[in-house]
């Protein structure tokens, strides 16, 4: 079970959180102008990487705030957490 550093509450057990899937998938501003393929891309296509993964979490049983996290999906090491409106840290400067 991960120990997740909530940006607002500090380190808490994973059981207090809910994973919200891949981060930085912005909802298209004008969906009606997208073709089915482009819409499916937003809706369903995911990078699902082996390695560094930028994902969203919510501290569901805590402050209920959403945040982003950078995690290695192979080692499950958490490298960084950052606010929803922040740019993801570049790999390498997450220390």
């Amino acid at each position: 079970m991960y120990l997740i550093p909530c940006p607002w509450c500090g380190e808490r057990d994973q059981s207090e959180f809910r994973s919200g899937g891949e981060a930085h998938i912005a909802r298209p501003l004008e969906p009606e102008h997208l073709n089915d393929g482009a819409w499916a891309d937003y809706l369903f296509m995911r990078t699902n990487p082996m390695g560094l993964y930028r994902e969203r979490w919510v501290h569901a049983h805590g402050c209920r705030r959403w945040f982003n996290m950078l995690r290695d999906t192979v080692s499950d090491r958490i490298l960084a957490v950052y606010h929803m409106d922040e740019a993801p840290p570049e790999p390498g400067d997450e220390s």
Partner: peptide, 10 residues
Amino acid sequence: GWLEEWLQTE
């Protein structure tokens, strides 16, 4: 949870 997610993330 759904409403909060939209409000906070989008």
